[in-house]
């Protein structure tokens, strides 16, 4: 059976409000932490965008290195980064 990649829901399926984290569990000792935690802003991005940001940090924020890592041209990578920045700005406005 194929494994399904679970996505962290951002908005409430009922009222569409922004979701928060209520409970966290340690998978090895099963300790549970209960509370109300705000989700980080970056979790609102798609998995691909999050991976892009992680890779971008790993190459020290160099678009040139990122372009050679992704085997894409410099402006293509810059445009991708600009789109992510635009999305983050739109989350900020909300």
């Amino acid at each position: 059976m194929a494994t399904i990649e679970k996505k962290l829901p951002q908005n409430c399926p009922s009222c569409s409000s922004k979701m928060k984290v209520k409970k966290m569990v340690c998978p090895s000792c099963e300790t549970e932490v209960d509370g109300l935690f705000t989700m980080p802003l970056l979790s609102s991005l798609s998995n691909d965008d999050q991976l892009f940001i992680v890779d971008f940090m790993k190459v020290g924020g160099s678009l040139k290195d990122m372009a050679s890592k992704m085997k894409l041209s410099y402006p293509t990578v810059r445009n991708h980064l600009d789109e992510i920045i635009e999305r983050i700005n739109s989350f900020d406005k909300k």
């Binding site: 085997k71 894409l72 041209s73 410099y74 402006p75 293509t76």
Partner: peptide, 10 residues
């Protein structure tokens, strides 16, 4: 092609 080639190469 510019998704892959730009700058000095192009």
């Amino acid at each position: 092609p510019f998704e892959f080639i730009a700058g000095y190469t192009a």
